[in-house]
Simulated assay, not measured.
Amino acid sequence: MLTLADIDVDRVAALLARYGLALSRVPDGEPIPGSYWGECEAGLIGCTVFARGDTPVHSMLHEASHLIVLPPERRADVHTDATDSIAEEDAVCVLQSLLGAELPDVGADRVLADMDAWGYTFRLGSARAYVNDDADDAWAWLERAGLVDAARTLRLPD
């Protein structure tokens, strides 16, 4: 599984900053603040994503995606659990792969493979099959939120 220690953290921080988010590196061995799953999984508090070197990249992107889909005025209230609905969770699963594609040392393929390895479950058997063939509602959700265009391309903020 690809971890934060394996990639250029400055690129991740820059990507998150485009959405008004901060990445806070947690020292190795320390508990991750705001982690829903515990262990090495990323955490959320307000507009900050917390991660250690051993945090899986897909986890960090997933938690960041939860903040990205929220209106900025709601982000400050987030602590540990940001999910508002199943529809939002589905959209976040798609968005995390799109964010991975924006990181040259990650890519969507790696995010999707690591989602499968971690244990995400989808009706069609894989994260890739979900995103490509079973996520029309999630894509529509992301389009309504202004995060992707009709061609299913990520709209990056300036």
Rank of each mutant, 00 (worst) to 15 (best):
L142P: 06
N132T: 08
L98C: 11
R110L: 14
G34R: 01
V111K: 03
R128N: 08
P33V: 07
D84E: 15
R144V: 12
N132M: 12
P31L: 06
G125Q: 09
H62M: 08
L156P: 04
H66K: 02
A127C: 07
E63P: 03
S97T: 15
A87R: 14
I32T: 10
A82Y: 00
D136C: 00
Y19W: 13
A140R: 14
A129P: 02
D133E: 14
G29Q: 00
E41V: 02
N132D: 15
G125V: 08
T83G: 08
D77Q: 12
A117F: 01
E39C: 12
R152N: 15
G43E: 03
D136E: 15
V78P: 07
C47Y: 08
A64W: 09
A135M: 08
A108K: 10
L15D: 04
P33S: 10
D28S: 13
T48S: 12
S35E: 04
V12K: 00
E89I: 01
A135C: 06
A82I: 00
C40V: 12
G46V: 09
C40Y: 10
D6C: 03
D109E: 13
L16K: 01
T55I: 07
D136F: 06
G43Q: 02
V94L: 10
H58K: 15
P33W: 07
G43K: 04
D8T: 12
P27E: 12
A101R: 13
D77M: 09
L154G: 11
G119I: 01
T3L: 07
G29R: 00
L16D: 02
D8K: 05
D137H: 07
H58T: 14
H58R: 15
R128D: 11
L142E: 06
A42R: 02
A91M: 08
L70C: 02
R18P: 03
E41T: 02
V69W: 05
L95I: 12
D134T: 02
S35A: 07
S97E: 10
E41Q: 11
L15V: 07
E39G: 11
W118V: 03
R144P: 10
C40L: 08
R11N: 12
G34N: 05
